[in-house]
């Protein structure tokens, strides 16, 4: 197995965060257990957006569509009695992949602002679709009776079990994504981000690579959606709303795009800030807004760039 190239400081940050997360359940506090489960799920969504945004240079403003679709797939299947995670979770991924193939095939014909607008439009279409889909709760959303089952192997209705499952999946996805970005495919994607015209003249069919990248990203978001449905035991259109796409974008930019780990830290910071500040005021965005401006102005590579002190390739 080839070793991953990683500067030492970055390794240290990564390792300490992972170790800290591994010990959260030992405190035994249900509130924190649930909070950090949620954070890890959003960390995966942020990572998935970073694959297309930070590495592929595709600014998608509709990423919540895949997240929400994954959640709805699990929720709707549960209504039909399909409780097995072995069926429901791959189904969530598959549905997201199929949708991404359609949305990507259309959106990637454009670029820049048009790409942002088209992805946003698709996501909002999907939002209003579920918003008006009364059979499955419409604007109110719908509850799930229980979490998915694992053929008796593990019981994720136990919060600690679910926590460690999410933790395991997150670490696995991070590892796979780090490999992916150093693979030949990853090099092509980053080449397209930096200079698509040159990539074409070198002989790469750039559209195809971008589309596959878009689909991979959506698959991860779809899986995260399946997890959030299990976490909240409730599925609602708010998962697909454009403000949710905005939140995910903020996580990526705040944390530092093009680093995979950064956006995960961004999810951690954003959700913790929200948790703390919303205890004082419901207008917690008033504090977060200026913070984001400061980061964008003075720390181009986000929180992760500040911590690791190295410039990312972006």
């Amino acid at each position: 197995m080839a070793k991953l190239k990683f500067p030492r400081l970055q390794q240290l940050i990564l390792l300490s965060v992972v170790v800290l997360l591994a010990f959260v359940p030992l405190f035994g506090d249900l509130f924190y257990l649930r909070l950090f489960t949620r954070i890890m799920i959003y960390a995966m969504v942020a990572l998935s957006l970073d694959i297309i945004l930070g590495y592929g240079g595709m600014v998608s403003f509709g990423h919540a569509a895949f997240f929400g679709l994954g959640a709805y797939t699990v929720g709707i299947l549960a209504r039909f009695g399909v409780a097995s995670a072995f069926l429901a979770w791959p189904a969530a991924i598959l549905v997201s992949v199929l949708l991404a193939a359609v949305i990507g095939a259309v959106s990637l014909r454009t670029g820049g602002v048009y790409f942002i607008m088209i992805t946003l439009a698709f996501a909002q279409m999907l939002y209003y679709f579920f918003f008006s889909l009364d059979v499955y709760g419409g604007s109110d959303g719908m509850p799930m009776v229980a979490r998915n089952t694992f053929a008796g192997l593990i019981d994720i209705n136990r919060h600690t079990t679910f926590y460690y499952l999410v933790f395991g999946i997150m670490v696995l996805i991070l590892f796979v994504a780090l490999r992916l970005m150093q693979s030949r495919f990853g090099m092509v994607i980053q080449g397209i981000r930096d200079n698509e015209r040159r990539m074409r003249s070198l002989g790469f069919a750039t559209y195809r690579y971008k589309l596959v990248c878009f689909i991979i990203s959506a698959a991860v978001a779809g899986l995260a959606g399946a997890l959030i449905a299990n976490q909240t035991l409730y599925v609602s259109p708010s998962f697909l709303h454009w403000t949710r796409s905005g939140d995910i974008l903020i996580m990526v930019i705040l944390g530092g795009m093009g680093s995979l780990v950064g956006p995960m830290l961004g999810a951690l910071c954003l959700l913790l800030t929200e948790e703390v500040l919303s205890g004082y005021t419901e207008h917690w965005m008033i504090v977060l807004g200026p913070l984001l401006i400061v980061v964008v102005l003075f720390a181009r590579h986000g929180i992760y760039g500040l911590l690791a002190g190295t410039k990312q390739s972006g």
Partner: peptide, 8 residues
């Protein structure tokens, strides 16, 4: 270059 795993 649809090779996703091995280090480039």
């Amino acid at each position: 270059s649809f090779r996703f795993w091995r280090d480039a």
